[in-house]
Design a protein around this nucleic acid. Structure first.
Lengths: 317, 317
DNA sequence: TATATTTAATAGGAATAATTTATATTAATA
DNA sequence: TATTAATATAAATTATTCCTATTAAATATA
């Protein structure tokens, strides 16, 4: 049994196709086929059900592949041990960030990240939460930054900041000008939300809809906050912005902002990584860096964390 | 990097000698040397300090070997996955038992173990606790049965029974004939104990000496309970027996037994295995078997567990 | 039904890698 | 300095992996 064989098997399990798996492993299909056969022969089991199309997994096969992943994951940590010892924060690092966090967080720490760790080649991936989680679990990402809690047993979450939601109310809204608002004030408004698949939307729905029926005339799902603000400016409804987004508005727009009364509804933004702790030394560096950089900008204590998972209760911090 | 290379490295780390390590791996010394060099080359570090005699480890080397052990351990679990799926309780299984438990426990379950699992080849090792732990950590054993708690982070303990200590008092002892005794009664007696290295002795010392100075005239450390009983019979002091041992005494000897008042001082006897959970399916079978077989013989609830680790407090169950 | 098309398995040979035997080097010790 | 013990190196052998080419089987299409 070799580590290479295990990688081949994982590739077949993932792509359900020997030819494609072979390509991904940079070998020819016969090579991969032979090694899979050898692995199956040595273990005296069949891992893949070749009679099905696409290729299926036997019951043992599924468990075997799980174990394969463990072994490969542990073997990949070997390089981490070396890097950690050298104190070298280097190599390739794949960081996924959800779209509603990316534009505000990246400017805060990208500069310092690249200048502090010149040996580190970071690739950024902007994807919705569920895709990030998927990639994280399949070794396609080393770390993600997303709204939490995600409630996933395979993952570890390390909160870095709590970011309150701020309501953006057009002038003619009945609550406009109020010093502090509470979620209940907004129940019967038309909501302008990001389109589905963005966890930010789930959070807002948990905030406004969870225990109350939606009472507005319509809701619109857009892809960016810019659109939502423009629509709100035209009096088509209200929207919500995460706090960091409000810092980049012009002075006119800022007049529309209405912050919530304590405990402010907020989202918890966390670093999320796999339990296998691959590249943990780099993750820790990024964590320290982010904690340092966000500490100044975000000091909210009395907040209610609105879950990005549908229909979950708020957690007070 | 191959699993074979990792096994070679682990062998060198263990034996601190390339030649011996090669023998243990059933290859020639140059083979092993070359593979170690390749591994070091690929990782771009040196694992072993060849300038020292015996061979030393570099700082990274130590961490690398830890990671090697993890990978190899996970890779060995592959076969477990297969065996578990087949429902086959088979293959080689190495079970270590401390000397004070071996002679009483083995007769209880050996028969049923071998007849229930004919495919399983169990090797038994009778060794003092510290050696068992050492072997368990180095994959030299799959499971041990010992007095617990051991307080070792790498190990998992599953208690199977609580075995009270019974005092063996010669006729002329001042407490002879008492219906129930308490530890304090025995503080000023001459103690006949097993020689050092046996955890049973530590337990007794925790029971009688922990907070009190030893007041007897002498103590003798023997290798077996038989000797101790004979010496006690001759009036040379008192001794203690674990409950299961008392069942095999003749009727005359049984008259000397004095059990403790509740909560009885007792030892906790547990299955102890490594956190890596190798061969866990077999371990679980043995656990179930032992629980079933000892349930009838040992039903003591109100006991104080006397630790086999020196100078630890009792734990009431 | 016959014919493409897709996909995995097989065969044979080239390239690569692991292992062995034999030998050299090195370091410690008498 | 000679001797011993232990690791490294060299050359040859063996084993394994991998590739190219081909076959076989299954599926889809005409």
């Amino acid at each position: 049994m070799t580590i290479v064989q295990l990688k081949y098997a994982i590739a077949v399990a993932e792509h359900r196709n020997f030819t494609i798996a072979a390509e991904k492993c940079f070998v020819t299909q016969p090579t991969l086929s032979m090694q899979i056969q050898k692995l199956e022969g040595e273990l005296e089991i069949t891992i893949f059900d070749r009679s099905k199309k696409p290729i299926g997994m036997t019951e043992v096969g599924t468990k075997i592949i799980q174990q394969c992943k463990k072994i490969v994951s542990e073997s990949e940590k070997m390089q981490d041990v070396v890097d950690k010892d050298r104190g070298v924060i280097g190599g390739n690092f794949k960081l996924g960030i959800v779209p509603t966090i990316m534009p505000t967080l990246l400017p805060i720490f990208l500069d310092e990240l690249v200048s502090k760790y010149p040996m580190l080649k970071v690739s950024f991936f902007e994807l919705p939460t569920f895709e990030l989680i998927d990639k994280l679990k399949n070794n396609g990402l080393d770390l993600i930054i997303a709204s939490t809690p995600l409630e996933d047993d395979e993952l570890i979450e390390k909160p870095i900041y709590y970011e309150p939601f701020v309501a953006y109310l057009p002038e003619k809204n009945k609550n406009f000008g109020k010093k502090e608002i509470i979620p209940k004030d907004l129940y019967s408004n038309d909501l302008l939300l990001l389109r589905d698949g963005h966890c930010f939307r789930n959070s807002i729905e948990n905030l406004c809809f969870d225990c109350h029926e939606y009472k507005g005339k319509f809701e619109l799902k857009s892809g960016s906050f810019e659109t939502l603000i423009n629509l709100a400016d035209q009096g088509l409804g209200i929207t919500f912005l995460p706090y960091l987004h409000t810092l980049r508005l012009n002075s006119n727009q800022k007049k529309m902002l209405h912050s919530f009364k304590n405990p402010k509804p907020a989202r918890e933004v966390s670093l999320v990584y796999h339990k296998n702790e691959n590249k943990i030394h780099i993750i820790n560096e990024i964590k320290d860096l982010l904690n340092k950089l966000t500490k100044r900008k975000l000091q909210f204590n009395d907040v209610n964390i609105i879950s990005p998972i549908k229909n979950r209760e708020a957690i007070r911090v």
